[in-house]
Design a protein around this nucleic acid. Structure first.
Length: 291
DNA sequence: CACGCGTGGCG
DNA sequence: TCGCCAAGCGT
């Protein structure tokens, strides 16, 4: 038996007092509800996910319910969460669960990892939060907290490293690992934030290696910012918004109207079709995907 | 493994 | 104002 880590008690006590009351953390949340929340939360803030999650749970309370729909309906009700390929993958995930797992969200990490849209983080999160499994959940919040508290660095490396995985495993308590994981995530989301960390409110500020070192700024090259205005991504977003709001095939002219640069527009539309987010029909119209 | 992928709010 | 950032994944 390992010695309990010094970080555990203060972080867990802090979480007991400061955890947000989120519906996918409620005792009656289903594994499906947890899975849907995790996919929606990939790169999207909690406040924007909340209303859409509630709508999805009411509309599609089980994987089989979503699996019975056309994929386009998942894209339509994704709304403006962003990265709509996630909606497509979540739909494919629901069909895989329905057809290959009896409609039950798997609890095994490796099985979860094999499903569409589920990567290392999401597999660990579902196995841990929905089923109580002992897995290290390494999201951007956890990585940042560990980078600062343990490694004395402002930000974690760009890609998750083996060293980070080893550290997360070493810190994982034998008992109640899911609560530890969600507590560290919450600490990163509410206190140990990327921009302006609130160290005065941090339960481990006395132990934090980064603070003790004088909060040295990130050494390496500036991290790559994501541009948006004028990009293919913005163009794709415009085009897909037209398809989402229409309840049926739309004429090409309706798509042409929302983006001036024809070359870029055609490239973006081809991309949407290639990704399965848009479907060209024989009469030259386009719609959200059916199958 | 670096890149592409939406969207909106905040400092 | 506008760049940064938000519970990543797939290729």
């Amino acid at each position: 038996m390992v010695e309990p880590n010094l970080l555990h008690a203060p972080v867990l006590d802090w979480y007991a007092d400061n955890a947000r009351d989120l519906p996918w953390r409620a005792p009656d949340a289903t594994p499906w509800g947890v899975l849907v929340s995790e996919i929606m939360l990939q790169q999207t803030p909690v406040v924007r996910v909340l209303p859409v999650w509630h709508e999805w749970m009411a509309r599609w309370p089980t994987p089989k319910a979503l699996a019975a729909e056309q994929p386009g309906e998942a894209v339509r009700h994704w709304g403006r969460l962003g990265y709509p390929r996630r909606a497509l993958r979540l739909h494919a995930c629901a069909r895989a669960v329905a057809e290959e797992h009896g409609g039950e969200v798997p609890s095994d990490h490796a099985t979860l990892l094999s499903l569409p849209g589920i990567g290392e983080y999401t597999a660990a999160a579902v196995a841990s939060f929905a089923y109580g499994g002992r897995h290290a959940v390494l999201d951007t919040n956890v990585r940042r907290v560990f980078a600062r508290a343990v490694r004395a660095e402002q930000y974690p490396p760009t890609a998750t490293s083996a060293a980070e995985r080893r550290l997360a495993e070493a810190l994982l308590p034998e008992l109640d690992a899911p609560r530890w994981g969600v507590a560290v995530m919450e600490l990163g989301a509410l206190v140990c934030t990327a921009r302006a960390p609130r160290c005065a409110d941090c339960p481990i500020t006395d132990l934090c290696a980064w603070r003790l070192a004088g909060k040295p700024p990130h050494a390496g090259p500036a991290r790559k910012g994501q541009t948006y205005a004028g990009t293919d991504r913005q163009c794709r977003g415009r085009l897909l918004a037209v398809l989402r709001s229409a309840h049926g095939p739309v004429p090409k002219a309706a798509l042409d109207a929302v983006w001036d640069d024809a070359v870029q527009r055609e490239r973006a539309l081809d991309g949407l079709v290639a990704d399965g987010l848009a479907e060209p029909l024989d009469d030259g119209t386009y719609r959200l995907p059916h199958s």
